[in-house]
Design a protein around this nucleic acid. Structure first.
Lengths: 126, 126
DNA sequence: AATATACTTAACCATTTGGTTTACTATTGG
DNA sequence: CCAATAGTAAACCAAATGGTTAAGTATATT
């Protein structure tokens, strides 16, 4: 078993993987927040951070590969801009789960109501 | 700014970090999708996957620590359930960016309109 | 032409991740 | 009591992550 498949299940980190992974780092989220104010150069984006420029450069590449930012090279300056449209993909993914938080109960609670385990079977009030 | 901080910025992976990281794995997203159908036991959740039970167990722990699933131990069975309410936190985070995709243009395009670099300054049509 | 500026690339490192196998700890059922 | 079942824990491993320093490549500036 485990048919062909070079190594593990991490062959090609599909789009959502890259997207969520890009968002899972606080530095990268701060960069995105900064970019809501408008496009910026790499040096400017790096300024607020205590890390070196190459470190920020890597973060930007990750954001770029996740399609969360776009890059325009103008001479020696790289101008980064937010690609808000990609965040809509997160929203789209979330859509499938929206009903699970617009309902007032989490699944576990619903389950409790359906099959009360040892709790008194009276209607939950309060 | 950025008060004492022992080593790097990875002291305590704050809630959003854990949340997005939990979502950045395809296996974990599939588990969440499965849980929209209702609570399930570990073995059942593991069944569709080609990995071992301990591997799934680890994924579940990550989802649990991200507060995306809740666990109820009933005898020797662990019953996992979706905690939809946590996904609302992702939605809340996304709120700050909503205007950037409801507008028809990405930031880079807006910037092009504001400060046309070398492109002809005529109104973009098409 | 020479220097400064704006970045990236490369090589390296410690830690984390996602998987494995091999124990181990409950519970449940015969 | 004994065996099967449901799951975690521990030890290990290769690969990825997030950072560093040092070097390299263009483009501006003087």
């Amino acid at each position: 078993m485990t048919p062909r498949r070079s190594s593990f299940a991490r062959d090609r980190p599909e789009a959502l993987d890259r997207l969520f992974h890009a968002l899972s780092d606080r530095t990268r989220r701060r960069i995105l927040a900064r970019l809501t104010l408008g496009p910026a150069r790499v040096t400017d984006l790096a300024a607020p951070f205590r890390m070196t420029l190459p470190a920020v450069s890597k973060h930007l590449r990750i954001l770029e590969q996740a399609r969360l930012v776009s890059r325009r090279v103008e001479g020696r300056v790289h101008r980064l801009a937010l690609k808000g449209s990609t965040l809509r993909e997160v929203e789209t993914w979330l859509d499938a789960y929206r009903s699970f938080w617009s309902e007032s109960l989490d699944a576990i609670d619903r389950d409790l109501l359906d099959h009360p385990a040892r709790a008194p079977p009276r209607t939950r009030r309060l």
